[in-house]
């Protein structure tokens, strides 16, 4: 175990360099540069708010915020898992040449998505102030479901990265899967309008729990029930254990398949 930690500490600078590279390259040659991390989600939110407060209307208090908060979490999950999925194959040239702990590439992708998550969370706060939503102290606690989603995405990302090295089909399949998953997550519709059959399916989706917890804390100043908290933690641990297990089982063969 201690050798693992030592190895991680040795390559910790690499992790920050990789994250910095992702961010730098994304905004290179753009006039506003890193400001786009904040501006991009903000602009998206303005459009969404206009669309959802005029065209679609569900019986939900402060509907734009409802949609935005769902988007913040779902987009992070989508972004983090999709980019970690290709993290091993797109660094093939490097992995074939020198020894680097392979999980670092997955971790770096999740971290760069995490930076985007913080930016879109900030944008969400700005929108909350702009629409004069009540700010409760429980807003501080909404960081907990966010961190759970980050850990959950890391687990799923590790699993996807390892499987994609074996079966490239997953890359094509996964974008279809996430489109479906978005409709199984209460991002644009409220849970109350679902027929009970579909509702039980939506409740099986781990993201539903995270999104609901986040909204409760951010907007309704409701502390999530003990049960949903435990469920969230268990699901996130399960994803991590499964992801790490599959990744470690397969990582020595990555090099032969990329």
């Amino acid at each position: 175990m201690s050798t693992y930690i030592k190895n991680f500490l040795k390559f910790q600078p690499l992790l920050s360099e990789l994250v910095a590279r992702d961010v730098k390259i994304k905004y290179r040659r753009s006039v506003l540069g890193v400001l786009w991390t904040l501006l991009n989600p903000l602009c998206m939110m303005v459009i969404l708010s206009v669309v959802f407060s005029n065209i679609f209307k569900f019986d939900v208090e402060n509907f734009p915020l409802y949609v935005l908060s769902g988007q913040v979490i779902f987009n992070f999950f989508n972004d983090a898992t999709t980019s970690s999925m290709t993290s091993i194959i797109s660094n093939a040239a490097l992995l074939k040449k020198i020894y680097v702990p392979k999980y670092l590439f997955v971790l770096a992708r999740v971290f760069s998505s995490f930076i985007n998550l913080m930016a879109s969370f900030t944008a969400l706060l700005l929108v909350m102030v702009a629409v004069r939503a009540e700010l409760h102290w429980t807003l501080v606690l909404s960081a907990i479901p966010l961190l759970l989603v980050v850990a959950f995405s890391l687990g799923v990302g590790m699993l996807l990265a390892a499987l994609t090295v074996r079966f490239r089909d997953i890359m094509h399949l996964y974008s279809v899967f996430t489109t479906g998953l978005m409709y199984l997550t209460p991002v644009i519709y409220p849970m109350s309008m679902l027929p009970s059959g579909i509702k039980s399916v939506v409740l099986l989706n781990p993201l539903t729990n995270y999104v609901t917890m986040f909204r409760d804390l951010a907007f309704n100043s409701t502390i999530p029930s003990f049960g949903s908290m435990i469920l969230g933690i268990v699901e996130c641990l399960a994803a991590i254990v499964l992801g790490v297990y599959v990744f470690y089982k397969n990582q020595d063969e990555f090099i032969l398949n990329i």
């Binding site: 990789l18 390259i25 290179r28």
Partner: peptide, 30 residues
């Protein structure tokens, strides 16, 4: 490892940025 020179370079980054990226690949901090 000097196995293949330049394997760790990211072509879009400047030489200066690549120095730090490659140093990190070899396990050196900033």
């Amino acid at each position: 490892p000097l196995i293949e020179l330049g394997a760790g370079f990211d072509m879009d980054l400047t030489a200066r940025e690549n120095v730090f990226l490659n140093g990190a690949l070899l396990g050196y901090n900033r």
